[in-house]
Design a protein around this nucleic acid. Structure first.
Lengths: 109, 109
DNA sequence: TGTACGACTCACTTTCGGGTGAGTTATTGA
DNA sequence: TCAATAACTCACCCGAAAGTGAGTCGTACA
């Protein structure tokens, strides 16, 4: 995706940004897990055994920088533990993703 | 968190299929254009000057095989022309994509 | 005669997102 | 003393997706 293509896309169809936000592999799945109180790195690795450390790390970072969840260091835990909590924004996105899921399950004649 | 719970959770995260369906570059944009009665190959190329013939061709084929739109040969046109019409299924998907767009535009504190 | 149009298809190349395997830091238990 | 655990980071590699440029087919018009 070069700069020119990006510009053209942005001008003509402004869903591009959001689509790219939700498209990265594992991202919405991880966000969903966080909403279900499964937010630890090692727990997420158990839920998705095939995700690589690097990608899980990146997805979590993206989720935080995009304001879909906040990261909280759990104090007095050794080795250190973290937790994540979905924001209102993240929860609203998950609802739309749920709609997508429903759409996918529906039978059309 | 036992093995069974992990599996249940992983199953609940199964939005993957739909996400992959909407993720390919240009796809939702092309579908949107079709819904706006911009459905000819050459017209779509004018809307998105940087899309390659090959990818546009593939996206249109995907859209048809997934039942998001139907392809109609316009009779008695020379050189031959085609048109596409979004199905009920495709229209329902576009509505959710519209929700995503609204979500993206909204300001969150 | 030849050139342009509409809607493609094909072989080839490039890009980049994601996977792999190893290393880090601090601490606790065997 | 050594291994294990939690939560990462880093350098490197690979493959699929997207881009490039050319070719096709059947007209129609200059």
């Amino acid at each position: 995706m070069n700069a020119h293509n990006l510009q053209v896309l942005a001008e003509h169809c402004q869903v591009s940004e959001v689509l790219e936000l939700i498209s990265p592999r594992w991202k919405m799945q991880v966000l969903f897990c966080i909403s279900q109180e499964v937010y630890q790195f090692s727990q997420l690795k158990k839920v998705f055994p095939t995700i690589s450390d690097q990608v899980l790390s990146r997805r979590l970072a993206e989720i935080v920088t995009e304001g879909l969840a906040v990261k909280i260091q759990v104090p007095d835990t050794m080795p250190c533990q973290v937790k994540y909590e979905v924001t209102e924004k993240g929860a609203a996105l998950l609802e739309i993703v749920q709609d997508l899921h429903e759409w996918g399950k529906k039978e059309w004649e």
